[in-house]
Amino acid sequence: MATEQGDVDLVDGDVVHAFARAALLATLLGAVAPIAIPIPFSPAPITLQVLFVFLAGLLLGPLWGTVSILLYLAAGAIGLPVFAGMAGGLGVLVGDSAGYLWSYPLAAGLIGLLVHRGTDLRDPAEVSTPLVVVALVTATVLIYGMGVGYMAWLLELELWEAITVGALPFIPGEVLKIAAAVAIVESGRIDTV
């Protein structure tokens, strides 16, 4: 057998497995960008990206959930059409919605830490529902805090003005996504890494 390749440093099998899932979840996050579901009593249709940010933390845990979202941001930064409206480019990562985008990896990491209590993953279906809900609500607050805060700074808006534009129309949708994320993990149909 060929032995001259003795210095090849193979990526460990478990790492490859987790990495492949992180990369394809990042792809899914980009692929749902154009899907918008209308909801009653709200001017803003819901998009599903935050749902997959939740699922990244719940199913991939704090480490690989965060990696997954960072891959998504990197893919968008180099121009793949993965951001809302199928846009891409580095500019989006400092633009009006940059606060939301940069909050995603932190939110996935936070959910992972709260639900899994570390990098050894637990089956999220076995974790108590209130804990999952608390984790998702905390993450949602983080996402809107960073999203609205950055928008207010960037566009020189008053905080309440930024909240009116960047948060209020979306609250009904967020409640719905939290419910969907809980239903998905409790179905037990998707195993963790």
Binding site: A23, L24, L28, V32, P38, F52, L176, A180, A183, I184
Partner: peptide
């Protein structure tokens, strides 16, 4: 309902995607 649709897309999308990843 919108919640059911989000759940369906999330669940099926994720399970197919993870099969591919594996």
């Amino acid at each position: 309902s919108a919640r059911e649709r989000a759940t369906t897309i999330g669940l099926l999308g994720l399970s197919r995607t993870f099969d591919r990843a594996d």
